[in-house]
Computed example of a mutant assay.
Amino acid sequence: MPTKVLTVCLGNYCRSPFAQLALSRQGGSRLTVRSAGLVSKWQDQPANPMMINAARRLGYDLTAHRGRHITLETMGWADTVLAMDASVLAMLRSVFGPQYESKLRLYLGDRDVPDPMEQDDDAFFDCAVMIEAGTALHRGGLIT
């Protein structure tokens, strides 16, 4: 049975949607990956156009993505929840409580994936490269 992984960022608009794609590709049949955001501002909206472009440059198609707000049901579904940065991780701990602590991790293990919002195309591309490179951590057994 595949491991169920949830990637989470602030809005499910840039980082977590791309992480979902990258992990899905790299994890193959051993991972089922979803993404969500802490705020509902981009609920049902496509990913940020600059992240769609960055994903395309790396060979991914992010055009089908529609933003999702994290729910208790989504948290319950996941075996592992990967927060894109420490502030997202802290908010997950605060909102969902200690019963989910064993599922929570930073996507990059010990460092943040910087939020590229309100920056240029290069920042989005650098973010996508960082996220894609981070899949190696998960292939190496970080996801349990």
Score class of each variant (00 low, 15 high):
M1N: 10
P2E: 05
P2F: 02
P2Q: 09
T3M: 13
K4N: 12
K4D: 03
L6I: 07
T7H: 01
T7K: 00
C9W: 07
L10E: 12
G11E: 12
N12H: 13
N12T: 10
Y13G: 02
C14P: 01
R15I: 08
R15P: 05
S16D: 06
F18Q: 05
A19Q: 02
A19V: 03
A19P: 04
A19G: 02
Q20I: 00
Q20P: 02
L23Q: 11
R25N: 06
Q26K: 11
Q26A: 15
G28T: 06
S29E: 13
S29H: 07
R30S: 11
L31K: 00
L31H: 12
T32R: 13
G37M: 09
G37I: 03
L38Y: 02
V39L: 13
V39C: 03
S40W: 03
K41R: 05
W42D: 10
W42Y: 15
W42G: 00
Q43K: 14
P46M: 09
A47F: 05
A47V: 11
N48H: 15
M50F: 14
M50A: 11
N53G: 01
N53Q: 14
A54Y: 09
A55T: 09
R56W: 05
R57Y: 03
G59Y: 04
D61Y: 07
T63S: 14
T63F: 05
T63K: 09
T63Q: 10
T63D: 08
A64T: 10
A64V: 02
H65Q: 08
H65C: 04
R66M: 01
R68W: 01
I70D: 07
I70T: 08
T71Q: 05
L72V: 12
E73M: 11
T74N: 04
M75G: 06
M75F: 11
G76D: 15
D79T: 07
T80H: 07
T80P: 06
A83W: 04
A83H: 06
A83Y: 09
D85L: 12
S87M: 13
V88H: 12
M91L: 12
L92N: 11
S94I: 01
V95A: 01
V95C: 01
P98I: 03
Y100K: 02
Y100W: 14
E101A: 15
E101L: 05
S102F: 05
K103C: 10
K103M: 10
L104G: 04
R105W: 10
Y107S: 09
L108P: 01
R111M: 11
D115I: 02
P116A: 10
E118F: 15
Q119C: 11
Q119I: 00
D120A: 13
D120W: 08
D122Q: 14
D122L: 03
D122I: 11
D122R: 08
A123Q: 13
F124H: 15
F124G: 11
F124Y: 15
F125Y: 15
D126F: 04
C127M: 06
A128T: 01
V129Q: 13
A133H: 09
G134D: 09
A136Y: 01
L137Q: 03
H138R: 01
G140R: 08
L142Q: 15
I143T: 15
T144R: 14
